[in-house]
């Protein structure tokens, strides 16, 4: 693929001036950022910062109060189905029908994304993620890590242009976490873009090309992890929490404060 030579591509995701409110309460307040082809973008922020709400607006689950959302140039609000066809989604908390087996879940979501999967293909894919023994099991009978792997498989079943992962490594053991990082990098290698949220600064530095820090619905800063450290290393709020040379975590805590959130 020679996508690098084709600047004509619109950004995979273009969020401009996004505002999301629940009732009278604004939880995403004028957020703007872009994600380009083949980029892994991390959204960082304390609990309740508005990360999931930002993703929900992109996924079409909540209607933004204002702002514009373009997926590959397609307006999410005007052509939601076309936008959704280009998105792969792993929600922070979601579940599959409890009565369906893994095999049946894979067939259902394959069908919904327009991918016909034979029994053999499903078997092969499940072997690749270590779930071949669980094909006949129900979703509820899987361990947390197995559920995560299945959810990621379903999210990528149609090889989406943009993958939205909401805290994909929460609750995973270190091995599984590394496995997921590897998988994310593979997907990027295939030309996909990824937007993920995480609370782990280590993860953000290990896999993300660029990160944004948001808090109270406001986007505080965006850039490459090393860039952010450079940019904020003189900030007194960052210096006051740093032990030695500032890290990304120091920048994060410096910018978002150290009190505990809801």
């Amino acid at each position: 693929m020679s996508e690098v030579n084709m600047p004509a591509h619109p950004p995979v995701l273009d969020v401009s001036n996004l505002r999301v409110a629940y009732g009278a309460r604004t939880v995403v307040d004028g957020v703007s950022f872009q994600i380009h082809r083949g980029e892994i973008f991390g959204l960082l922020g304390p609990n309740g910062a508005g990360k999931t709400s930002t993703l929900s607006a992109i996924e079409g689950l909540v209607k933004p109060k204002s702002g514009r959302l373009l997926v590959d140039g397609i307006d999410v609000q005007e052509e939601p189905l076309d936008a959704k066809a280009r998105l792969g989604v792993q929600l922070q908390s979601s579940s599959f029908q409890a009565e369906l087996t893994i095999q049946q879940i894979a067939r259902l979501y394959g069908g919904l994304y327009g991918v016909k999967l034979s029994r053999e293909q499903i078997g092969t894919s499940m072997r690749a993620i270590g779930l071949e023994q669980e094909l006949g099991k129900r979703f509820k009978q899987l361990s947390g890590g197995q559920q995560q792997r299945l959810a990621l498989f379903i999210a990528t079943i149609h090889n989406p242009l943009l993958l939205l992962l909401d805290e994909p490594t929460a609750g995973l053991d270190p091995q599984a976490r590394r496995g997921l990082w590897r998988r994310i990098e593979e997907l990027r290698g295939e030309g996909n873009s990824i937007l993920l949220t995480t609370h782990s600064m280590e993860e953000a530095q290990a896999v993300c090309d660029r990160v944004a820090i948001i808090d109270h619905g406001l986007l505080l800063t965006v850039g490459e992890p090393s860039e952010l450290i450079d940019k904020h290393r003189e900030d007194p709020r960052v210096l006051s929490v740093a032990h030695g040379a500032p890290t990304l975590e120091d920048v994060f805590i410096g910018l978002t404060g150290s009190e505990i959130r809801d």
Binding site: D72, K84, A85, G111
Partner: peptide, 13 residues
């Protein structure tokens, strides 16, 4: 997962 990318059209109803 070697499916061709289906980024041109939405899937058949």
């Amino acid at each position: 997962m070697t499916n061709a990318r289906v980024d041109t059209a939405r899937p058949p109803m």
